[in-house]
């Protein structure tokens, strides 16, 4: 199935916010081998001036995963997820993510292209607090090679 280029500009937003838990941050820090106390101990995080346990810089991928799945699973988009590789990733941070944050994701399909047997999808996700504070902007480029 060909990539549907008419989806460029299409917006996606999960209905439910993502609640950042201390245990999820610790689990993620463990998984990447990061040992900093501020990722697991609220007292250590407060000593550094943070409101609660802080998340590692790439933790926002956990927060954007539901909306990334919405995009990948959108049948009309025609992205063959079984052939997808991750081509590019970018984060711009308004501030760090902390345990206790309740965050929403607003995604837009920024750029779609299909040429030389290569389908490419770039989407941007704005991660916001309920009050509208910009926490991070996350760009992801996925590429799917057409079956030979």
């Amino acid at each position: 199935m060909a990539l549907n280029l008419a989806f460029e500009g299409r917006r996606f937003a999960p209905a439910l916010p993502y609640r950042v838990g201390r245990e999820k941050i610790r689990e993620f820090a463990d998984a990447i081998g990061a040992t900093e106390a501020a990722y697991r101990d609220p007292a250590a995080a407060r000593e550094l001036g943070y409101p609660d346990v802080i998340a590692p810089p790439t933790f926002p991928v956990v927060i954007t995963m539901p909306v990334a799945r919405m995009i990948a699973d959108e049948p009309e988009l025609g992205l063959d997820y079984s052939r997808v590789v991750h081509a590019e990733q970018r984060f711009a941070y308004g501030r760090a993510v902390f345990a206790g944050d309740e965050l929403t994701c607003e995604a837009v399909l920024e750029k779609l292209s299909s040429r030389a047997g290569l389908d490419s999808v770039t989407f941007r996700v704005e991660i916001l607090t309920a009050a509208g504070e910009a926490v991070a902007t996350v760009w992801t480029k996925l590429v799917a090679r057409a079956e030979a």
Binding site: E36, E88, A96
Partner: peptide, 22 residues
């Protein structure tokens, strides 16, 4: 990369932007 950056900067909140191509 994030772990190395945090180690160099000495603070997880010091990372303002991060981008890569795989």
């Amino acid at each position: 990369v994030g772990r190395a950056l945090v180690g160099w900067a000495g603070d997880p909140a010091a990372v303002r932007e991060l981008s890569v191509r795989f």
